[in-house]
Every structure is written in C-alpha cells, then in structure tokens.
Nucleic acid binder design. Structure first.
Lengths: 203, 203
DNA sequence: GTGGTTTAATAACGACCATTATGAAAAAGC
DNA sequence: GCTTTTTCATAATGGTCGTTATTAAACCAC
C-alpha cells in the first residue's frame, strides 16, 4: 500500500554517478544532483539516505558498471597480458566520455574538508582492493613461472596502480586517448620477462 | 607612513601552503587558513587578494621551495639519471611531512565546483610545464644518443609524469616511502637503454 | 468511498562559505 | 599635538551548503 515511487532508482543512481564522476564528492551539490537526476531533494534522501551513502552507492555502481574490465583482466593467462589489458582498458575508459573524464576512484575525493574523511577513506579502500587483487594475481604468476623469481608482486601491483592513477589525472587534464595509450605502452616496456614457462596456460 | 604590517608575509604564505597542501583549494576554508596563519581574514585579503590569488601565490612558493629537485634533476647527464632523481626525490617529498602528504600539484584541485575551474586549470598548466621541460630534456638526450632513435620523448615525459602523479595519490593514501621507492624502481626498470654514447658528458 | 500509508514538491532550517564594511589602534610627517 | 595613512579585529554581508518539517497528492485495502 501507499504511493508508488515515480522515478527509476537505477537511472537516478546512474545520473548521480555522472555528477560525482565529474565534480567529485564535495564538488557535487544537491543542486547539481537534483538537476541531473530530475528528482527533488527529499526523494533522494528517502531513497538513498544522505549524500555520503548516495556516493557509496554510486561508487558500487561505478565498479560493477565501468570497472568490469578489471576482474576480466585478472583471468588472462599471463601477468603481462593482465597489466596490458588493464592499462589499455583504462586509457579507453578515462577518455570514453567527453565530460566525466578520468576515474571516479581518483578524483572522487582525494583531498578536502575534514567532514569528507570517511568518503576519502572509502576511496582509499576501493583502490586498495584492486591493488590487492593485482598482487595476488602476480603472486600466482610468480608461482607459475610467468614472472621471474626476482619479481616483487607487491611492487608490481603498486607500480601498475600508480600508472593507472597517473593516467586518470592526465585524462582529467584533457590528455587524448592516444597519449594515454603511449603512456600505457611505456609502462609495459619494463615489464619483467617470463621466468620458466610463460605460455603454457592459454594455448 | 602609516601603520606597519604586524605579521610576516612569507611565514603567512608558508602556513597557507601547508593548509592547501593538506586540504586542497576548495577544502581549505578561511577558518582553516586564519587558524593556521594566526592572522585575521581582512589582513589576508589586503596582503594577498582573494582566495584564488592566495592559492596561486602558495603554488608559486610550493614550486620554488619544494620542487627545486626538478630543475636540478634536468641538469644530470643522462635521461635515466634525470628520471631516477625525480622519481626518488618525489618519493621522499611525498612522504616528508606526516600531514600534508602527496603533491599540491595533484590534489590541490583535481575535481570540484565549477567555481574553481580557473584554479584547476592553473594546476593543469603547472603540471604541463614540468612535462614540457622533461620532454625537451629527453629530446636533447635523444639527439645526444643518450636515448635510442626509437624513443619517444613526449611519451617518456608523459609516462614519467604519470608515475609521479600516481605516487602522489598513493602517498596521500598513506603509502610508505619504501613502497613509493619500490614503485620508482619498477618505473625505471623499463627505461630505454642508451643509444650510441650514454656516458660521454659527466665523466 | 473512506482510512491508512507512502511518496511528492515547496520551503524552510541552521551552519558555513568567501568577501567586505566599519571603526579602533598604531605609525609617520608636520 | 595633530592630521594623515595604513593595518588591525569585530562583525556583518548575501549566498550556498546538506538536511528536513510540512503539506498536498497518489495509491492500496476494506
């Protein structure tokens, strides 16, 4: 019983995600959000709670809707292919939409008011989760002989993430996809060569 | 004639720089600034103008006071040494102060309100200037045979900047100096080997 | 159709934002 | 000592922030 909700919650979340992607958590006001979503403030509060939980929902949606290349990359046969796929996919995603360039995980909330510390920490954990998955994947690669014995999976994961973060910053500054791809290629240039048996999994 | 200024403008600028470094342009309020500087609002306005021009002054100061490793690195004999010096200096700077970690050029203002677009653009140009200097230095290195004929100075410069940006993001997230140095080492692993005469300048 | 329940839009809330008017305090010239 | 000029602190400006009463509208059960 009771009145039906007149707007699509999923669509509203998509619209909110776009605003946060473009302006970050603190830069996005409810005036921006309601204008983009086409729904008045109280409706957003009743559907999503406050601004922080709306952002967290948008971040979840960002992960499942735009970061799907990440888990798919982890399944590729070699560490090098994993890195390459993530790098070039990110170059594409970071420049896919003329507005909302870059990565929500980076410029969603890097620095700002003390009030937004919780959101900042949420993004830190968001990135740490991806890095941990990479590290685990590279440890496996090392065990499989796909990475040399001297390789440091933790350093490789952090390094790859650093390049991704940097590409996001550059995308936000207006770098073209081609330039980001050149960065990706350069990042792959120093990728450690396989140890014993690099190509015995896929073919 | 007239009353003397009772506070040190240089000290005030240093204090303002610390606040912007920590919280970014939009995240730093005048309440934060006056608390850190120990000077009331009207004094800041009369000495520096509005918030934007105060930030620009702080950015200038940041460059000349904390980015001096950059021009010094450019004078090193080989492109690899240039890159290495900048990478490890940044790892140190990004973790030198427990508060104000990372780089002002990155999280000073990446995303935010439309009102701060001018400041955002100022930071884009700040970074672009550094990248242009790197590109010019690498072009010289290529001409000197210090980089191979196949090397792309623009891509190398963008790549190096990307790693630096990523390290700044990671520093802000709490990464240790050791971890950032591991990232720096990994970034150097793929640096192109010298072409014809890599070591005929310094020794 | 009526009562109970949920959503909708309007408009307000206090708090904080960057910026500035106001007038007192202090220094220099005469 | 008095005037002029600059800096100082107090306090207020209009505006926007995130959040929420309040009230009207829409729906279901009976």
């Amino acid at each position: 019983m009771g009145r039906h909700r007149e707007f699509d919650v999923e669509k509203a979340l998509d619209a909110a995600l776009c605003v946060f992607w473009r302006k970050g958590y603190e830069g996005a006001s409810y005036a921006d959000l309601t204008a983009a979503i086409g729904v008045e403030r109280p409706a957003l509060y009743s559907a999503f709670g406050n601004k922080e939980s709306l952002f967290r929902r948008a971040l979840e949606r960002y992960e499942e809707r735009y970061m799907d290349h990440f888990p798919r990359a982890l399944q590729l046969p070699t560490a090098r292919e994993v890195a390459a796929h993530i790098l070039f996919s990110s170059a594409e995603l970071n420049t896919r939409f003329p507005d909302q360039r870059g990565c929500l995980g980076i410029h969603g909330n890097l620095a700002g008011t003390d009030d937004s510390e919780a959101v900042r920490q949420a993004l830190v954990e968001f990135r740490a989760k991806g890095e941990a998955q990479l590290r685990a994947r590279f440890e496996r690669a090392k065990a499989e002989g796909d990475l040399p014995e001297t390789a440091r999976p933790d350093a490789l994961a952090a390094y790859l993430m650093a390049v991704l973060h940097g590409m996001a910053v550059q995308a936000k500054a207006g770098f073209s996809r081609e330039m980001l791809e050149a960065v990706a290629e350069q990042a792959l240039a120093g990728w450690p060569a396989g140890g014993t048996a690099p190509s015995n999994k896929s073919a």
